[in-house]
Nucleic acid binder design. Sequence first.
DNA 1: GATATCTAGTTTCTATTAGTTACCAAAGAA
DNA 2: TTCTTTGGTAACTAATAGAAACTAGATATC
Lengths: 123, 123
Amino acid sequence: MKPNVYAADCPTRRILDRVGDKWAVLILLLLREEPMRFNQLRRTIEGISQKMLSQVLKSLERDGLIKRRAIATVPVTVEYSITQLGVTLAGAVDPLRDWAEQNLKDVLAAQRRYDSQQKEEAA
Amino acid sequence: MKPNVYAADCPTRRILDRVGDKWAVLILLLLREEPMRFNQLRRTIEGISQKMLSQVLKSLERDGLIKRRAIATVPVTVEYSITQLGVTLAGAVDPLRDWAEQNLKDVLAAQRRYDSQQKEEAA
DNA sequence: GATATCTAGTTTCTATTAGTTACCAAAGAA
DNA sequence: TTCTTTGGTAACTAATAGAAACTAGATATC
């Protein structure tokens, strides 16, 4: 009864797409360390815009992976924290991050090989 | 000496982006099962266009994750197969796929909760 | 002989999405 | 008075994903 991950309508693929999100995983890993506020996240993640951050936080909350808590201070404080479900997903992402760190050199070397061969063929 | 995954120029993030690619992981998992030809892949992966398939195959080859082998038949046959490096990456993706399969129900439930609450607030 | 088929792509164009910039309200500080 | 802070939103633009048509070269069909 294995779901067919290659079919267009496979619900598992919807989740893989979600995880594939450029910023989502980064945010999840950060919030696993400690709860954080909106602008704190923005400053930590280089290159993310307010709009994207707001958007991704909303979708992560919708998926039940993080929690949003607004505190009535002035100006208002909004704290984001990871949920139990989010922690398990972050755990599943760890092997991937480890792989990236261990194999980065090999990938870069492969890219250089490929690029120099392409240049050769063009000449 | 931990790389800062949250910095814009972190090379590890380049790889996470790569893995985050919608089709790349799907193709990698397929080729781990058995080598496949271009149109065979296209038919198996529902919803992928020829352009995207061609593009993703090229970038996977560039990263040294798959191999391309053209056989001089008529019409020409091109076989794609996974490399050793690709196998290790696919292995790191497995926990993610397992997580998706196990927790899909919870995610969908969270989405329904969120959506109905939004509708309530709008009313 | 003209047309259709297979292969593995590329080209062109459009729709969607990602990202940038400017702006909002409310309150405190300079 | 203007500037800064909070956590966003609205409008706009750049980048990318995807749809559809086209390519080549040889073989099969009408």
